[in-house]
């Protein structure tokens, strides 16, 4: 899809699949999965460092020209998320951030109040904010109005693999969003990634579905193909659904 790039904040990506790096058993598996996925943008988390040791994930991404997208995973308040984004900017030299402010550990659902507050503060501070959000069209609109560069509604809660629980909401978000919509969280298998694209999303972000699969590189390939298939289908103009059959062969003579 080289002629159909994903454009976020003026920057073009040939791949519409954003991969997360969390959950991989080891660096070798992660590396093969990243390459099989064709991703050009990949999330990393910001955590305390052990004495004098780099974790190697940055070196891995740099080696393959994959852009790291720091997230604010684990943050529960706007203040925590803003500080984490500022630390990520200092550590990685990027002003891009996947903003994630969750309400509790059990659901890992975004806290809408803290999320919007953090988004406003980070946009004011010059960040390019990609906001992980609920599948709520109103909140998505407010995040876009606040200046977020992309809105990333969940299909279902992080790590559940339950797919897209409310496809109609995702379609409403797509219909109104002035910025790219990236389906983030809940994808379990390739058909769900394809569905996200068929619903009109501009991209898909997933991690667990690949990194926790029995064969992560192969699932990464499946996701690459699923996203591409869904995108082609979206742009092709699907047939309307009909109640009764319509023959596709000529009538018998």
């Amino acid at each position: 899809m080289a002629d159909d790039p994903l454009v976020i904040a003026g920057r073009e990506f040939g791949s519409r699949l954003v991969l997360g790096t969390g959950g991989a058993a080891n660096m070798s598996v992660l590396e093969r999965a990243l390459l099989a996925s064709g991703t050009e943008l990949t999330t990393v988390a910001i955590r305390r460092m052990d004495t004098g040791e780099r974790t190697g994930v940055l070196d891995l991404l740099a080696r393959h020209g994959i852009e790291p997208l720091p997230n604010t995973a684990g943050c529960r308040s706007a203040a925590e998320a803003v500080l984490t984004a500022q630390l990520a900017r200092e550590a990685l030299g990027t002003s891009w951030v996947k903003l994630e402010v969750v309400a509790d550990d059990r659901t890992l659902l975004p806290d809408p109040i803290e999320l919007l507050d953090a988004a406003e503060q980070l946009v004011d501070d010059g960040f390019t904010v990609l906001a992980y959000t609920n599948d709520d069209p109103v909140l998505a609109r407010k995040l876009a109005d606040a200046g977020c560069a992309a809105v990333m509604p969940l299909g279902s809660p992080i790590g559940t693999g339950l797919g897209i629980g409310n496809p109609h909401n995702i379609e409403m978000i797509v219909a109104e969003a002035p910025v790219p919509v990236i389906l983030d969280a809940g994808i379990g298998t390739a058909s769900e990634a394809a569905l996200a694209m068929e619903l009109g999303c501009d991209g898909v972000l997933l991690a667990s579905a690949v990194t926790r699969a029995d064969d992560p590189p192969r699932m990464a390939e499946a996701m690459r193909l699923g996203v591409a298939a869904g995108r082609h289908a979206r742009l092709s103009g699907r047939i309307p659904k009909r109640f009764w059959a319509q023959a596709s062969s000529p009538d018998p003579d």
């Binding site: 969390g22 990393v44 305390r48 790291p68 997230n71 990685l92």
Partner: peptide
């Protein structure tokens, strides 16, 4: 003093 870096995640 907090010293942080990027790790696998997200």
């Amino acid at each position: 003093v907090e010293v942080l870096t990027a790790v696998q995640g997200g």
